[in-house]
Amino acid sequence: MGTLASLKMDLSYILTPFIAWLVAGCLKFLVNSLRARRLAFNLIGYGGLPSNHSAIVCSMVTLIALKEGIQHPAFGVAVTLAFIVMLDASSLRKQVGKQAAAINKLSQPFDDGQSRLRERMGHTRIEILAGAITGAGVASLIVALQMGIV
């Protein structure tokens, strides 16, 4: 049995992915608003730069690498999960978006006021890379803050 001090949990493993998601979401809103030249609340959601999903998983990959080392089994699990998520973001979800566009085009003549399917689902490689960099940056900053470097 350990003491209460040894049971102390490192909250960075819970907070880092949330903070990465928040930072990526704010950056995406800013980028979309600049591109649209207005507050782009209607563009919040799937797709866009940076990828929230990539930011979340890459923040955990980076956090584990920096705190536990790349030899730790959790690092391998995190890399595997990140790989699956980023592949999904670039391929499967992009195909879903293409299907939504085709369905919307087919239903256009019969439009009876129903909402259209969201077509922007996937990410480009640049959006995924931007998400990965965002997540890695957030995790690096959190580790630096914990170590007193920043």
Rank of each mutant, 00 (worst) to 15 (best):
Q99S: 09
E119C: 01
I128K: 02
A100Y: 01
G148P: 05
A100H: 06
G97T: 03
P109R: 04
G131Y: 02
A100P: 09
G113T: 13
G131D: 07
M121W: 05
A101W: 04
V138T: 07
G122C: 09
T124W: 00
R118A: 12
R120G: 15
H123P: 04
S107G: 13
G137T: 01
A136D: 01
A101L: 09
E119S: 04
Q146S: 11
S140Q: 01
A130Y: 02
S107E: 14
L141N: 02
R120N: 13
R120V: 15
D111K: 09
G97I: 05
K105H: 11
G122A: 02
Q114H: 15
A144V: 08
M147T: 15
I133E: 06
T124L: 03
R120L: 13
M147L: 07
S140G: 12
Q114N: 10
I133W: 01
A136C: 14
I133L: 12
Q146D: 12
G148E: 08
G148Y: 01
R120W: 14
Q99V: 09
A100T: 03
G113C: 12
A139V: 00
F110Y: 07
Q99N: 04
D111Y: 07
E127H: 06
N104C: 03
L145D: 09
G148M: 07
R116I: 06
M121Q: 12
G137A: 08
N104I: 02
I128E: 02
A132D: 07
V150A: 11
L117W: 03
G97E: 00
E119M: 04
I126E: 10
V138C: 03
V143L: 03
A101C: 04
T134W: 00
I133M: 13
G131L: 07
G131T: 00
E127V: 10
F110K: 04
I142E: 09
I149E: 08
R116S: 15
V143W: 03
G131Q: 01
N104A: 06
R120T: 15
A101E: 13
S140M: 03
R120H: 12
R116K: 15
A101Q: 12
G137W: 00
I149C: 02
S107I: 14
L145I: 10
L141C: 07
R120Y: 12
H123F: 11
A136L: 10
Q99Y: 09
A132C: 12
M147V: 09
A136W: 04
I133S: 06
A100M: 07
A144T: 11
I149K: 06
E127G: 05
I126K: 10
S107F: 13
